[in-house]
């Protein structure tokens, strides 16, 4: 895709804003529409756009498939770990009230971490699917 200079320039311009918007959706989900799920998808789309325009090999250099698989499991573990942290702090599983001294702050912290776990899992699942599909065409 070296000849498509318009695509490359536009994508180069767009990708940082797509990523930034994903982070905004992720961390502003408490106040407006959005949350981990949507943010993960948008982040993955930004990354896939990069891989499509600048070559899948370059995309794999930015985020190796092995690291992506670790993130895939790490998101779920982060979510479940917040629940275990609640248990260790003498609360119920996924009880956020005990995470901080002030119950409302605990809820904020819990929701933030849980949404981050969802976002990481969704983004890395989408990227993993894209990697697998894009790796297939060599076979033919």
């Amino acid at each position: 895709m070296n000849r498509h200079s318009i695509l490359r320039v536009v994508a180069k311009f767009m990708i940082p804003y797509i990523m930034l918007f994903a982070l905004y959706v992720q961390f502003h989900g408490d106040f407006g529409p959005g949350g981990g799920f949507q943010a993960g998808v948008i982040f993955a789309v930004g990354f896939i756009l990069y891989a499509l325009i600048f070559g899948i090999e370059n995309g794999r250099k930015v985020l190796p498939a092995g690291v992506n698989r670790i993130l895939l499991a790490g998101g779920v573990l982060l979510y479940a770990g917040v629940g275990v942290a609640g248990l260790l702090l003498e609360g119920n599983y996924l009880d956020y009230f005990v995470l901080a001294h002030d119950p409302v702050h605990g809820q904020h912290l819990g929701i933030l971490l849980v949404e981050l776990g969802v976002g990481i899992t969704v983004a890395s699942t989408m990227i993993a699917l894209f990697y697998v599909f894009s790796g297939q065409d060599v076979r033919r």
């Binding site: 989900g29 949350g35 809820q107 819990g110």
Partner: peptide
């Protein structure tokens, strides 16, 4: 919960188990 977006507080706090299952 202290989160202005009720959808987020239901999803991540009141229905935390469901969202864990979804993930």
């Amino acid at each position: 919960v202290g989160v202005p977006n009720i959808v987020t507080s239901v999803l991540a706090s009141y229905r935390g188990y469901d969202t864990l299952g979804e993930t």
